[in-house]
């Protein structure tokens, strides 16, 4: 694959917090355009830390993140132009309607002159009910908020999308709809990086799947490789195995 397609890259990325906890231990990974990378792992395995590092919410202890070839630590603002983010259980601004929220974040993302219709279109695309478009977000269910969250990412139209456990707490139908949207985005050529607990969906959608344990990427498999392996068994084995650091 050509280098052009490389959208997200973590290069020898480590993070040690002030309290001495090593949250991320020499992570190396790459996500290309049109690829979905699923990061699996227990709580505190370092998945969210990886995403925080990509978004420059925290500085790395060693190593570098690249988004679209831009060093995130050096030029965070430029890098953030090429990435959209969907967080776990986002509350959004409760006093604003769905469209107003979308409008605000679109403007922050640099899309300043969008029409009402453009917002409606995106919301239809994530199959949010029409009547919810002009409703205050504080009346929304979690599934609806998550749909709105992804439409915020869509409207930014960035080459990379980072998702932090996007399906946690969603009912099966909502989660299924959510994955369909991801599939579509993938086919549009987005590089999608998503942390999740959900092995089944990871296997279903991921072009590549990584498993993290105690800050280390202990295993990485492509879709092709997984056809011959039982991901679930591998994952459970890793979870049950002895701690890495004695």
């Amino acid at each position: 694959m050509s280098k052009q397609n490389l959208i997200l890259k973590a290069d020898d990325l480590s993070k040690r917090y002030e309290d001495g906890v090593l949250a991320l231990d020499h992570l190396n990974l790459e996500v290309r355009a049109g690829e979905v990378y699923c990061l699996l792992g227990a709580n505190c395995a370092g998945k969210t830390t990886a995403i925080n590092l990509f978004l420059n919410f925290i500085p790395p202890t060693t190593g570098t993140c690249y988004i679209n070839g831009i060093d995130v630590t050096k030029d965070p603002l430029e890098a953030k132009k090429y990435v959209a983010f969907v967080s776990e259980n986002v509350m959004l601004y409760g006093n604003f309607t769905a469209r107003q929220n979308l409008d605000f974040f679109a403007k922050l993302g640099g899309k300043t002159a969008l029409s009402k219709d453009a917002y409606y279109q995106v919301m239809r695309r994530v199959s949010l009910q029409e009547k919810a478009f002009e409703q205050r977000v504080k009346t929304f269910s979690k599934g609806m908020r998550q749909k709105l969250g992804i439409s915020i990412a869509i409207i930014k139209d960035a080459p990379a999308i980072l998702l932090d456990e996007p399906t946690s707490g969603l009912d099966p139908k909502a989660a299924e709809e959510f994955l369909e949207i991801l599939q579509e985005l993938k086919s549009e050529g987005k590089a999608i990086f998503m942390s999740t607990h959900d092995i089944f969906r990871a296997k279903e959608i991921g072009d590549r799947v990584g498993i993290m344990k105690e800050g280390r990427l202990v295993l990485e498999r492509t879709r092709e490789e997984l056809q011959f392996e039982d991901l679930i068994k591998i994952y459970i084995d890793y979870m049950k195995s002895e701690p890495l650091t004695a």
Binding site: L55, F57, L77, E78, A79, K80, K81, V83, A84, F85, S87, E88, N89, V90, M91, L92, Y93, G94, F105, L108, G109, G110, G149, I152, K156, L162
Partner: peptide
């Protein structure tokens, strides 16, 4: 911060 909108906003190219 507690609502998560801070992260969402700062994921954009906003200083």
């Amino acid at each position: 911060k507690s609502f998560g909108t801070l992260k969402l906003a700062l994921a954009n190219p906003v200083p």
